[in-house]
Design a binder for these strands. Structure first.
Length: 436
RNA sequence: UCCACCAUAGCUCAACCGGUAGAGCAUCCGGCUGUUAACCGGAGGGUUGUAGGUUCGAGUCCUACUGGUGGAGCCA
């Protein structure tokens, strides 16, 4: 039953209603009282504002405000006033309150510190906290910017399947589910192979969806379920591919600075390093990367993979994302095109984010010769039969083509400068967590 | 899968060489007309993750288990 008659305004729009009486519909996230004055802090999903209730103004409203507990749902009616004392710039002189619900039990998340186990067990409530509000808003802008980039550049969205047969990069473990009479199906690790098919139909294609890895990874960079954006372009070679990646990433960072600057500020994210994310990005070959790391004292030799510490060792030499290209064939996936000049390396690149955030993109030119592809599938001991349709793509008008996958949560972590990837997604799935 | 660490009040933590459990916040009561994690006074709140063991005595030492955290590998 809504009794208050003032016009509903979202908190983000209060600046347009100074001097007017409006109704704000939200939740109380903090309150203070001082005998004759009550401060109610309310959030409504668009922002935060403080309401002031003076006892001398309305004793009835003051008594109502006294009953309110943290996370009560309320509608407050009051006059909007600009106020320098408020960190939000505006305040509400409250003249009436309608209490929708006072929590049945004490709200678990207090104003003091909590441990990560407790917060993750209460993720459904933790989402209401200011920090999470800002992170999820940045994530929202990132995803919009990604989609916008492709839309602006003539790409077609192709949604790739989440349930697949036994086919993939053969990277890591797969989650399996029962699939009627057909045996096991698997949750996708990548839509790449399907995007390759779509690129032969539509030229420039991309996807953006959930991806699953059953690896028992336990690090601040890994989730078992994460969102990945992949792109695939017919007639692009590895250089075209790298150019596309730097254009995408610089576009996304630029749009986020423009549209979510206040959220980054609230997260105390220093935006100076982000402002430097302009094309062209530095590129170094794997060979050069190994030499650089050796010079810096890393124990690495040609042929070794570049691990987390090594990634940081390389990226700290640059002030923007760096692309490391042409890795040894032995440490990369079966479908990557060998360098025609040097068959021991493949035409690929990893984009490493600055500030120690590591790999945000994995990319390569794909093998377009059917015989070579079959040879590589066998070399990796993969079942050639399962890849029949993928090999077919090379039989009918095969062309050079390239693509990449970009981890959305890794991008969010880097742009927000998060300690851990679990805050970059609303409900993180990690090895020991599926609830809530 | 491997390595390391953690588990004490609702929450975050403390408790020295093994000697019988303590603070802040939260809750409840009282005070305060501009608070910003508000503050001040008072009260209640505990089978120290579980099961064993050593000891006159274990939150503290030992073993196993359970749950969690960080990292390696793998990758986005």
């Amino acid at each position: 039953m809504i009794i208050l008659s003032a016009k509903w305004s979202y908190i983000k729009d209060l600046k347009d209603h100074v001097g007017e009486i409006v109704a704000v519909k939200g939740w109380i996230f903090n309150k203070r009282s001082s005998g004759k004055i009550n401060f109610l802090q309310i959030r409504d999903g668009t922002g935060f504002v403080q309401g002031i209730i003076e006892k001398t103004y309305s004793e009835e409203t003051f008594i109502k405000a006294d009953k309110i507990k943290l996370e009560s749902s309320v509608i407050i009616e009051g006059k909007v006033r600009e106020d320098k004392r408020s960190p939000y710039g505006y305040e509400l002189d409250v003249n009436d309150i309608e209490i929708i619900q006072i929590p049945l039990e004490e709200y678990p998340i207090s104003k003091k510190d909590h441990g990560i186990d407790f917060l993750m067990n209460n993720r459904h409530l933790w989402l209401r906290s200011q920090r999470q509000f800002h992170i999820l808003n940045v994530r929202n802008e990132i995803v919009w910017a990604v989609r916008e980039f492709y839309k602006n550049n003539g790409f077609i969205l192709v949604d790739t399947p989440i349930l697949t047969g036994a086919i993939g990069e053969s990277a890591g473990e797969l989650f399996s589910v029962d699939y009627f009479d057909l045996g096991k199906a698997y949750l996708t690790q990548t839509g790449q192979l399907y995007l390759e098919a779509a690129a032969m139909a539509l030229g420039k294609v991309y996807n953006l969806g959930p991806t699953f890895r059953a690896e028992k990874s336990k690090t601040r960079r890994h989730l078992t379920e994460f969102w990945m954006n992949e792109a695939e372009v017919a007639y692009y070679d590895s250089n075209d591919n790298m150019r596309l990646q730097e254009e995408l990433v610089s576009y996304v960072v630029g749009r986020v600075l423009e549209r979510a600057g206040d959220h980054l500020k609230a997260l105390e994210r220093d935006v100076k390093p982000l402002e430097k994310v302009q094309t062209p990005f530095p590129r170094i070959s794997y060979d050069e990367g190994v030499k650089l790391l050796q010079k810096k004292g890393f124990d690495i030799k040609w042929g070794d993979d570049i691990g987390g510490d090594e990634e940081t060792g390389i990226s700290e030499e640059f002030d923007r994302p760096v692309m490391v290209y042409n890795y040894p064939r032995k440490i990369k996936a079966f479908y990557m095109q060998p360098d025609p000049q040097r068959s021991e390396v493949v035409l690929c690149d990893d984009m490493l984010a600055p500030e120690g955030y590591g790999e945000i993109i994995g990319a390569s030119e794909r093998i377009n010769d059917p015989d070579l592809l079959i040879e590589r599938i066998k070399e990796f001991n993969l079942p050639v039969d399962s890849y029949d349709w993928y090999i077919d793509l090379r039989k009918y008008g095969t062309v050079p083509h390239s693509g990449f996958g970009m981890g959305i949560e890794r991008l969010v972590s880097w742009i927000c400068k998060l300690e851990h990837i679990r805050e970059a997604i609303p409900f993180a799935r990690t090895i020991y967590r599926i609830h809530p």
